[in-house]
Amino acid sequence: MKFKTLLLSVLAVLAATAATAKTIELLNVSYDPTRELYVDYNKAFATYWKAKTGDDVVVKQSHGGSGKQARSVVDGLPADVVTLALAADVDALATNAHLIPADWQKRLPQNSAPYTSTIVFLVRKGNPKGIKDWDDLVKSGVSVITPNPKTSGGARWNYLAAWAYAKHKYGSDAAAQKFVGELYRNVPVLDSGARGSTVTFVQREIGDVAISWENEAFFALKEFGADKFEIVVPSISILAEPTVSVVDRVVKKKGTAEVAKAYLEYLYSDEGQDIAGRNYYRPRNPAIAAKYAANFPQLTLVTIDAEFGGWTKAQKTHFADGGVFDQIYAK
C-alpha cells in the first residue's frame, strides 16, 4: 500500500508539473532599428518570466517601417504587443481597427514610452562635406539619406526635427516648409524604414549624410566600424519617444494578456532600462541614464507636443495624404 501511495504521489506531482508548465508565444511587432534591442530584451524577459512563473516565453519579432508595421497589425497581423517608433502609429490601432482603447498611452508610465532617442547625423569618416548642422543638409551638392515618412516612423522624426530647426532659426512655418522642401530635394533615395536607410548609406555607400536615429547611428558605428563613420550632433533635434502597447483584442483572443502586459512593464525595470541603455536608447530611469550619459550628448530637444501640438495634429498636417510632405515631395 505504501509503495502504491508513493507511486501515485509521484505521478500526481509529475502530472501537476506537466499541466502547469507551459510555453507561451508572443509576437512583438516593432519598427526597423529595434532588432538588436529586442533580441537582448527578449532573452532577459524570458529568464525573468521563467523564474517568476515557471513558464517559458518565446517572443517572435517583426520589424519594418513603423507606419507599415502598424498597418500590418490593423490588417490582421496578430501582434500581442507593438513597440513602434511613435505614438501616432500606435494610435492607428485604436482609430482604424479598435484593437486597443483610445487612452492606451495612459496605461504605462511616461506616456507608454519606456525609452527615448533623438535624431542625429551620420557622416563618413573625416566628415568630407563638413556637415555641422541642419543648414548644411540643404546645400547644393550634399546628398542626404533619410527614409520615407509615409512608411517610417524614424523618417517622421527626422522631418519634424528639421522643421523645428528651421522654424526656430527662420521664424515661420512657411520658412520651415521651404527649408524642408530644399532638404528633400537633396534626398536621392527614400527607403521604407530606418534600417533600409542605414543599408543605403553604409553598405551601398550612397549619400554624404544620413539623418538617423541616435541608436541607429551608434549601431552603424558598432557594426560597420568607427573608423568609417562618425556622428554629428545638430544644434537642435527632437525628443523621439517610441511607444509601446499591448494589443488588447489579440491577447484576449490568445489568452496572453498577463504575460504581454508584464513584457511591456518589464521594460521599465532596472534590467529593461539597462538593456535599452546598452543598445543606445536613452533610458527613462535617471540612475541608469546617468550610467550611459557619456554616450548621449546634451543638446536642445524640442518635443512633439510643444512644437507640433501632439502627434495627432502633426500626423494630419504633415503626413496624411495631401499633407505638407506630399506637397513638398510632389515638387
Binding site: 536621392p188 533615395v189 533600409g196 543605403t200 550612397i206
Partner: peptide, 17 residues
C-alpha cells in the same frame, strides 16, 4: 558613380517592395 549607386539602390528598393 554615385548616380549609378543611387539608381541601383532604387531598383533594389523597388524589388524589395
Amino acid at each position: 558613380a554615385q548616380q549609378i549607386k543611387v539608381l541601383s539602390r532604387q531598383i533594389e528598393i523597388k524589388e524589395e517592395a
